[in-house]
Amino acid sequence: MFSIIKEVQKAFNGDSWHGNHVMQTLNNVDPGKAFQYFIPNAHSIAEIALHLTAWTEEVTSRLMGNPDAEPAIGDWPVPVEKTPQAWERIIFNFKTANEELIRHIGNIMDEDWNDSSKEELSVAGTGITFMELLNGLIQHHAYHAGQIALLSKF
């Protein structure tokens, strides 16, 4: 499914119709702001970036046939280190996770796109397809890219 690969690439680092793709949004963040909390009870930019990485890795895992689980690094990982170098590693890890996802998508056979992940939807009681899973990740990237763009204006 070339079109879904293209949409994932656009959300990650391509020509998104809604504005900057998530990589550009992350690259535009001042490292000095990445770990700050601008809104009470809200996540920092770095925490959002780690969350994006976590779920990108989890989607790749599900596409590889692994059972659904919380991401290996957790849903909302907390940065251990809060330095410009740590921020660069967070961006690098997000980039690597997305490149790995895109490589894996390229290996999915056309007849497998309507296969269900092992995720059970609570309402329907059926799994979601690989296509639906990737569409969800694309939406997730756009949603959090908007949050990061707003937070970086503080």
Rank of each mutant, 00 (worst) to 15 (best):
Asn41Glu: 14
Ser44Glu: 09
Val29Met: 02
Thr83Phe: 03
Pro79Arg: 04
Ala54Asn: 07
Ala54Cys: 05
Tyr143Gly: 06
Ile148Asn: 02
Asp112Ile: 00
Pro79Phe: 04
Thr129Ser: 14
Thr60Glu: 15
Asn114Gly: 07
Asp30Trp: 05
Ser61Asn: 11
Glu132Asp: 12
Ile48Pro: 00
Asn13Ala: 03
Glu99Cys: 07
Asp68Pro: 14
Leu101His: 00
Met23Ser: 15
Val80Cys: 04
Asn28Gly: 07
His43Met: 15
Tyr143Ala: 00
Ala54Lys: 13
Ile148Lys: 00
Asp15His: 13
His21Cys: 10
Met131Lys: 13
Asp115Gly: 02
Ile148His: 03
Leu150Asn: 13
Ile105His: 10
Phe35Thr: 05
Met131Tyr: 11
Leu50Ala: 13
Asn107Pro: 11
Ala46Gln: 03
Lys10Trp: 00
Thr83Asn: 11
Asn98His: 15
Glu132Asn: 01
Ser117Tyr: 00
Ile90Tyr: 13
Gln147Tyr: 09
His144Trp: 03
Thr83Gln: 15
Val123Thr: 10
Ile48Gly: 03
Asn27Arg: 12
Leu133Ala: 06
Pro79Asp: 11
Phe94Ala: 07
Asn20Lys: 15
Met23Leu: 10
Glu70Val: 14
His140Ser: 05
Asp112Gly: 02
Met131Leu: 07
Met23Lys: 10
Ala149Arg: 04
Leu50Trp: 14
Ala46Cys: 04
Leu52Lys: 04
Glu70Gln: 15
Leu133Tyr: 00
Asn93Leu: 10
Asn98Glu: 03
